[in-house]
């Protein structure tokens, strides 16, 4: 193994010994991709329309009560009795655990065999990217990565203040913080719409191995 490592690296070094093969590349600025965006665009409106384009379902709420009601109606209309759910401190508003308890909806955790029976996964998110309708979810204590993946329905909860314009804003603003976060979470997932495939004759089909439905409940706080 170390022999392989040594040999590969020394071959690469030898290959580059003659000099930098692509000196012209060193002068190009790649710190921000040039993808123009309209600065006056309303982030919330853009986010919602992008999510709908990729078959996500948006629920807008003006108050915590309205947001909880939206969550309840998603769960009820799908006859959900078992969920995977992020711990309360990682959700964007209070009352979720309470709601589930009063509705008799179980929160389950444990082995693959156990969590496989969950009918819905409830998560928060770190950020939401307006330009592409993307949610950013980092793993951590109380933040299951499977909750947004294994159950057939994913309900993501967020506040509108979590919106950022573009992917590159997630990286470029506060670069050092971002690096720290990437190192701390074993997994950060960007989710854009419901799982899909185009494998059969390149015809889009929604709902493959990931969730069949994704609901995003947005509490308007700005």
């Amino acid at each position: 193994m170390t022999a392989a490592r040594t040999e590969i690296l020394s071959k690469l070094r030898r290959a580059l010994a003659a000099g930098t093969p692509f000196p012209q590349a060193e002068t190009v600025d790649t710190s921000r991709p040039v993808v123009p965006i309209n600065p006056d665009e309303n982030l919330l409106a853009r986010f919602c329309s992008e999510v709908e384009r990729v078959r996500g379902i948006i629920h807008l709420a003006d108050s915590t009560d309205a947001a909880l009601a939206a969550l309840r109606s998603v769960l009820h209309s799908n006859d959900v009795t078992r969920t995977m759910c992020w711990d309360a401190p990682h959700l964007p508003f209070d009352g979720v655990t309470n709601l589930l308890a009063t509705q008799g909806i179980e929160i389950i955790a444990g082995t693959n065999e156990v969590v496989e029976t969950a009918q819905a996964g409830i998560t928060g998110c770190d950020w939401a990217i307006a330009a592409t309708g993307t949610l950013v979810l980092s793993s951590g204590p109380g933040r299951s990565r499977m909750a947004s993946l294994l159950p057939p329905i994913h309900v993501a909860l967020m506040r509108s203040s979590q919106l950022i314009p573009r992917l590159e804003d997630w990286v470029a603003s506060r670069y050092a913080d971002r690096l720290q976060q990437i190192r701390t979470s074993s997994n950060i997932t960007f989710i854009t719409g419901s799982s899909r495939t185009s494998d059969i004759e390149m015809q889009p089909v929604f709902g493959v191995h990931g969730p069949l439905q994704i609901h995003i409940v947005i509490l308007k706080d700005v």
């Binding site: 204590p141 990437i182 979470s185």
Partner: peptide, 17 residues
Amino acid sequence: VYTNLMSGPKREHEPDG
């Protein structure tokens, strides 16, 4: 739909991975 960033195995108090 998914862009997945993976940095090592699950951390001590993470529930899964």
